[in-house]
Amino acid sequence: MSLIGTEVKPFKTQAYHNGNFIEVTEEDFKGKWSILCFYPADFTFVCPTELEDLQNHYEDLKKLGVEVYSVSTDTHFTHKAWHDSSKAIGKITYIMIGDPSHTLSRNFDVLIESSGLADRGTFIIDPDGVVQGVEINAGGIGRDASTLVNKIKAAQYVRSNPGEVCPAKWQEGAATLKPSLDLVGKI
């Protein structure tokens, strides 16, 4: 079942953020755009490359009014230990959510039950707490955070301009489409 168009289910968990432990709930996603980036586990191989890449694009995302959350089934304590010991993860200034109860991983349908780890899932959530974008990759396939900037811009444009849609490879300022009977078969 697709999560597109569904509201984030209630949850409450702990996270590591800039030297502190904080509580995060579904309410934190309301009133702003959010990205949830699920990954299998701390102290692994592909994961730190993805999370560092996400940090490299974090300022651009923040300028768009987006908060970023990484999520794994590790604890917030493990996130702190990884942050303190890894050069790549030590750069992270966004929120690192711990999901040892697997509540979030199940809510977003990325939990691999047999291992207790999460798939590589990226979710774009609008200010109403509704999922607008989903990308899920196999464990060995790392994601490119630069694509999130354009996806967010497109999602924000569509939200602000009802009746318009963004075509493939759309860039901010480029032409959009207005679906209508006149366009059928003409693209």
Rank of each mutant, 00 (worst) to 15 (best):
residue 126 D to T: 01
residue 133 G to C: 02
residue 68 V to M: 05
residue 174 A to K: 14
residue 149 V to Y: 09
residue 78 T to F: 06
residue 50 E to C: 10
residue 168 A to P: 13
residue 66 V to L: 05
residue 39 Y to E: 04
residue 118 A to Y: 00
residue 13 T to Q: 04
residue 160 S to K: 14
residue 74 D to T: 04
residue 111 L to D: 00
residue 97 I to S: 00
residue 121 G to R: 05
residue 4 I to K: 03
residue 34 S to T: 12
residue 84 D to S: 06
residue 35 I to S: 02
residue 129 G to L: 01
residue 49 T to G: 12
residue 117 L to D: 00
residue 169 K to M: 15
residue 173 G to A: 12
residue 159 R to L: 14
residue 157 Y to N: 08
residue 144 D to C: 09
residue 15 A to P: 06
residue 105 S to N: 07
residue 7 E to P: 06
residue 42 D to V: 09
residue 159 R to H: 14
residue 3 L to T: 03
residue 86 S to E: 08
residue 185 G to P: 13
residue 181 L to M: 15
residue 132 Q to G: 03
residue 149 V to C: 07
residue 142 G to K: 01
residue 14 Q to P: 07
residue 112 I to F: 00
residue 114 S to Q: 10
residue 61 L to K: 03
residue 119 D to S: 09
residue 144 D to S: 09
residue 68 V to Y: 02
residue 157 Y to K: 11
residue 2 S to V: 01
residue 55 Q to V: 11
residue 169 K to E: 15
residue 117 L to W: 02
residue 179 P to E: 09
residue 161 N to K: 12
residue 116 G to K: 05
residue 74 D to E: 04
residue 48 P to W: 04
residue 80 K to P: 01
residue 44 T to P: 07
residue 3 L to Q: 02
residue 19 G to D: 03
residue 143 R to W: 06
residue 8 V to T: 02
residue 80 K to I: 05
residue 95 I to A: 07
residue 153 K to S: 08
residue 149 V to F: 07
residue 8 V to P: 00
residue 90 G to M: 04
residue 30 K to D: 12
residue 182 D to M: 15
residue 72 S to C: 05
residue 50 E to I: 10
residue 174 A to N: 15
residue 79 H to G: 02
residue 37 C to R: 12
residue 32 K to D: 09
residue 99 D to A: 00
residue 129 G to T: 00
residue 108 F to I: 03
residue 31 G to W: 03
residue 103 T to S: 07
residue 165 V to G: 12
residue 111 L to T: 04
residue 63 K to I: 13
residue 139 G to Q: 10
residue 96 M to K: 09
residue 113 E to G: 02
residue 47 C to Y: 10
residue 155 A to V: 13
residue 63 K to A: 15
residue 174 A to R: 13
residue 23 E to Q: 13
residue 180 S to T: 14
residue 74 D to G: 05
residue 1 M to E: 09
residue 130 V to F: 06
residue 81 A to M: 03
residue 124 I to M: 00
residue 135 E to M: 08
residue 82 W to S: 01
residue 174 A to C: 15
residue 29 F to I: 11
residue 66 V to R: 11
residue 27 E to V: 07
residue 17 H to G: 05
residue 110 V to G: 04
residue 133 G to M: 06
residue 106 R to D: 06
residue 48 P to H: 08
residue 86 S to P: 07
residue 183 L to R: 15
residue 32 K to E: 11
residue 104 L to M: 07
residue 151 K to R: 12
residue 25 T to I: 15
residue 52 E to C: 12
residue 176 T to S: 13
residue 150 N to V: 11
residue 119 D to K: 10
residue 126 D to E: 03
residue 63 K to M: 14
residue 160 S to Y: 12
residue 122 T to N: 03
residue 39 Y to L: 11
residue 67 E to H: 12
residue 97 I to R: 01
